[in-house]
Write a protein that binds this DNA or RNA. Sequence first.
DNA 1: CGAAAAACTGACCATTGGTCAGATCCGGGA
DNA 2: TCCCGGATCTGACCAATGGTCAGTTTTTCG
Lengths: 231, 231
Amino acid sequence: MAVTPKGAGRHHHGALRRALLDAVADIVREAGPEAVSLRECARRAGVSHSAAAPHFGDKRGLLTAFVTEGEARLAATMRAEVAALPAEADAAARLAATGRGYIGFAQANPAHFRLMFRTDLIDRGDPAWRAAAEDAFAVLDQAMAAAVPGMDPRARRARLALAWSAVHGFSTLRAEGVGALWSPQVAEDVVGLVVAACVGGSGIGRASVVPPPRPSPAKRGRESRSGRGGA
Amino acid sequence: MAVTPKGAGRHHHGALRRALLDAVADIVREAGPEAVSLRECARRAGVSHSAAAPHFGDKRGLLTAFVTEGEARLAATMRAEVAALPAEADAAARLAATGRGYIGFAQANPAHFRLMFRTDLIDRGDPAWRAAAEDAFAVLDQAMAAAVPGMDPRARRARLALAWSAVHGFSTLRAEGVGALWSPQVAEDVVGLVVAACVGGSGIGRASVVPPPRPSPAKRGRESRSGRGGA
DNA sequence: CGAAAAACTGACCATTGGTCAGATCCGGGA
DNA sequence: TCCCGGATCTGACCAATGGTCAGTTTTTCG
């Protein structure tokens, strides 16, 4: 259908849907999730504020579509972090990479991340959102399943909850501006501790964790890629 | 009402400040943090919406005062959980109790808890809020310090970040309605895992942790036995 | 070509937070 | 006693927001 150059253009404005979503992204990036208003989005897209209704229904619909893209990007970030691992990386290392991906996404897109968990602003019944959220969760779930194979359900669920809670809590506190003293190094250490707590007692092969509580100076594994310090 | 038995009343309304804060608490409890509006609070207190200004300045001031009380109650809840421990409880058990207190407060007051971390709605420069927040943090900080004495700074900070992130993430996801499948048992298990990860190897005296991942020796089979997407 | 369908506009409404002049009440002086 | 200063509160205004609706414009299709 339609030989219109952009594909979806009807009025003199093409792809309004995309333009509105981009406007949301801009506003969120510039001024935080609270600054997003239907009218400002429409203003930036050059249309009247009523023009969004045919595409998204209401503000909640617009924001739901926006955070749905966020879920997809979160899942992609986690998968990319795993894919960047050397081929011989074991399941624990892949679980750690998944956690780094989660935290990394939240750090790179703090406002977007915050909006993704504002359940009052999004429609959690939306099928597209639900699918995207479940897919993102599946990345973590499968990484955990691979890291602790054959674990009994209760223990496995506890570890899944721990891992998700830890990376989510870390990301949330950081995005919200609390605990500003936390550096990327701390993030790395937290992920290491989580993986260690999930896959076994203390010393796993790869996940070089911060040393155990003995004051004696144990060999602290040289961490891989956490070059940048301080924040 | 009441001819101001106490000393703070001037107009025909006594303690307006307290009445407004109580109104906030009611609204938050009944309809969530987003439903709080200056006008509705004033309506419930029986005054015009401008009456709040002399007491709180603006809406942000009112909410800041409200969440300041929340920080105090959070700290009190954590301390109470520790105090309920038998006298012979060790530092690890006290750390676990602190974590349970954090999660318990969030579960008992989900909307209040959510509001406490809406940094866009509160004034984080407010001295009273700052003091209350630091006091609440100190509870966790001191419990951790007692649990891992003599640990080097980096390792200690990583464990502090892990503990705070885990209990905060768990509480947030729960208050936000995500991960609804998580039971109190899961909360207990998560706290146990966190404490174990912080204080050392695996088995702490009191914190009954879920069993470690040693199900059976040689098994390398299906790892990708897909998990369920958490709704 | 013409009609139906969809996108979009502009106006209207209720509600919100903030501000302001002025009314009201309190306490402390003359 | 009378009256004034200061704080409290009211009612009115304002700008902005989200939602709705009738109507206009554009596209698509019969």
